[in-house]
């Protein structure tokens, strides 16, 4: 396939940035999107140009590092995949592909397509954990009986890889699907009950502090999430936050 790429180039956080057009040739439909980007970068490097900076790590849909807003959608037009799992067979020969960084005030651009998602880390640090004494006397987790449905729902919520596609897809740049998933994975389990009140209040407070927008329930986050995190997690977080606020 021969493709035209329109890519956001930005030298650094203070640079204004602009869309730049490139041509790539002989792209196999079996390549992943990131491999196509590797081909482009090789072309650019061979010509003495600056390669396009983009986030990537595991390249198997687990780490949540890859991002990119491809043709108007986070992680591109496929469903249930990260950008590294997106294949070039989703595109046609002669296509023009627009590639932008995840856009949100809370995700400032570092360079080209690389954004700073450490706001998610700070939300996690505010309450996305349980306090367990790991001095050698840790109780076997299976010693606590847990309802199968609750365990399944907690596991589903815990599959969130924190990639930020929810924020990027949301017209309001809301992080509520991410925070909802992180709150839910603990709220559904007995181990998470001890710190439940502080957890949801602190995580929501940090989320608001980071400058994410307000959720208006469009559901775009759920559709674009590579892990299929459900909107039910946002509803659960809302319930948790309300009851935590009543408790004081």
């Amino acid at each position: 396939m021969n493709l035209t790429l329109k890519i956001w180039r930005q030298k650094g956080p203070q640079d204004k940035g602009k869309m730049v057009e490139y041509k790539v040739t002989d792209i196999s439909e079996h390549m992943s999107f990131l491999e196509m980007m590797d081909v482009l970068n090789e072309q650019l490097t061979n010509k003495g140009g600056e390669p396009v900076a983009f986030d990537h790590d595991c390249r198997e849909g687990i780490c949540g590092m890859c991002s990119m807003y491809i043709n108007g959608e986070a992680h591109g037009p496929d469903r249930g995949v990260t950008t590294c799992q997106l294949h070039m067979r989703m595109f046609k020969d002669g296509d023009t592909i627009t590639i932008e960084p995840f856009r949100a005030k809370a995700f400032p651009v570092i360079k080209d397509l690389v954004v700073d998602r450490s706001s998610f880390d700070r939300i996690q640090q505010a309450g996305g954990f349980i306090s367990v004494n790991t001095s050698g006397n840790t109780q076997d987790a299976n010693a606590i009986p847990i309802d199968k449905h609750a365990a399944d729902e907690a596991m589903d919520a815990a599959t969130c890889i924190g990639c930020g596609a929810c924020v990027a897809s949301c017209k309001n740049s809301s992080a509520m699907l991410f925070v909802g998933a992180k709150v839910s994975q603990y709220a559904l389990l007995p181990q998470g009950q001890i710190e439940a009140t502080d957890r949801v209040k602190n995580m929501v407070a940090q989320m608001d502090l980071e400058g994410f927008g307000n959720c208006t329930n469009t559901g775009a986050c759920e559709v674009e999430c590579p892990k299929g995190i459900s909107l039910e997690n946002i509803a659960r977080m809302n319930r948790e936050f309300f009851s935590a606020s009543i408790k004081g």
């Binding site: 940035g17 043709n71 108007g72 959608e73 932008e100 949100a104 005030k105 400058g211």
Partner: peptide
């Protein structure tokens, strides 16, 4: 909410 995204996408689907 508009302020939460300073730069709009060039292409948004």
């Amino acid at each position: 909410n508009k302020n939460a995204r300073a730069i709009k996408y060039a292409k948004n689907n």
